[in-house]
């Protein structure tokens, strides 16, 4: 079976869009966010993702419903939940093995933001998949933070995904960006040459065909026009839409509502000067560590 591909990035780094694109390659199966990196057994998963955090199960439930029954109806999702609850003893590895078996010989692509929350999560993935590929997607800390603040506003107004736990978060988005990036950069040292690749999301999205081709070349999969064309249609994924009532999300709600690529908008993606600072703090300078990492990623 092929080794999976993980997109690793802080939240609000265009992972949904880029993941949606890469996941449409004929040799790849794009998964919704399954949040399997923080736990060792399915029992732990069910225990952790309950109550206000239940929304975190949506991706896995939709995936299981789709793989088992070829549909994501409310009934299929309810049966998937039941199926999962009967496998509390399963290890994460067993669940991954099951998913791969269902997916077949395609490369599984996964991009849960939870993967980057702690370095142990990333290391857990590497422990299960020592030969996995990791694509580090970067986004300017200023625009990523601004996007986080906008999403938070949507949540407060009840227009977005997530439970109470997300609505009440008050952390400065720069801290979230920095924590995830530090975890990823530390994790990078655990990887072999060629196992990790970094790309600026802004660069990729301005010229998706050119950069998606490089990602395919790196992964050793088809780079022909047909394969690239398929990647320009993330909306074709069965997961690129809202799910049934008990598993509505499993990805960024904005992406789920509108997964079609707006090429004109992407061409206008900006990278403001780092000196502009954090807009949500009145233009106050970014932290020293943020600036250091941002410059390393190519932001100036």
């Amino acid at each position: 079976m092929p080794d999976p591909l993980f997109i690793i990035a802080p939240g609000r780094s265009y992972t949904s869009l880029v993941g949606g694109m890469i996941g449409q390659h004929p040799d790849i199966y794009g998964l919704p966010e399954v949040n399997l990196s923080a736990i060792d057994t399915m029992g732990q998963l069910l225990q952790r993702l309950q109550g206000p955090f239940d929304f975190g199960l949506a991706g896995l439930l939709r995936l299981l419903a789709e793989l088992h029954e070829g549909e994501q109806s409310e009934e299929a999702v309810v049966r998937a939940r039941q199926w999962l609850s009967e496998r509390r003893h399963w290890t994460t590895r067993e669940m991954w093995d099951h998913l791969q078996e269902e997916v077949g010989d395609k490369i599984m692509l996964e991009k849960s933001p939870l993967n980057n929350f702690r370095i142990e999560h990333l290391r857990r993935l590497l422990d299960i998949f020592p030969n996995a590929s990791f694509l580090h997607l970067t986004r300017h800390p200023g625009t990523a933070g601004k996007s986080s603040m906008a999403l938070r506003e949507q949540l407060r107004e009840g227009r977005g995904a997530g439970g109470e736990g997300q609505k009440t978060r008050s952390m400065d988005p720069e801290q979230g960006w920095l924590r995830a990036q530090k975890n990823i950069m530390e994790f990078w040292h655990d990887l072999s040459v060629g196992q990790y690749m970094r790309v600026k999301a802004e660069m990729l999205l301005r010229e998706p065909e050119f950069y998606l081709g490089q990602i395919c070349e790196w992964l050793g999969i088809r780079t022909d026009a047909e394969a690239i064309e398929a990647m320009l249609h993330p909306e074709a994924s069965p997961y690129a839409c809202m799910g049934p009532p008990s598993a509505k999300f499993g990805n960024d709600p904005n992406f789920l509502k509108n997964p079609v690529i707006d090429f004109d908008r992407l061409k206008k993606i900006k990278e403001p000067p780092l000196e502009a600072g954090a807009e949500w703090r009145g233009g106050e300078a970014f932290y020293k560590d943020t600036l250091k990492l941002a410059r390393q990623f190519g932001y100036a």
Partner: peptide
């Protein structure tokens, strides 16, 4: 460092990373 660039994908021809690993 292997990398994605505007000049195309760059993979080290020697197989070595920075500083010859």
């Amino acid at each position: 460092e292997p990398r994605i660039t505007p000049d195309g994908l760059k993979i080290p021809l020697s197989g070595y990373g920075p500083g010859m690993n």
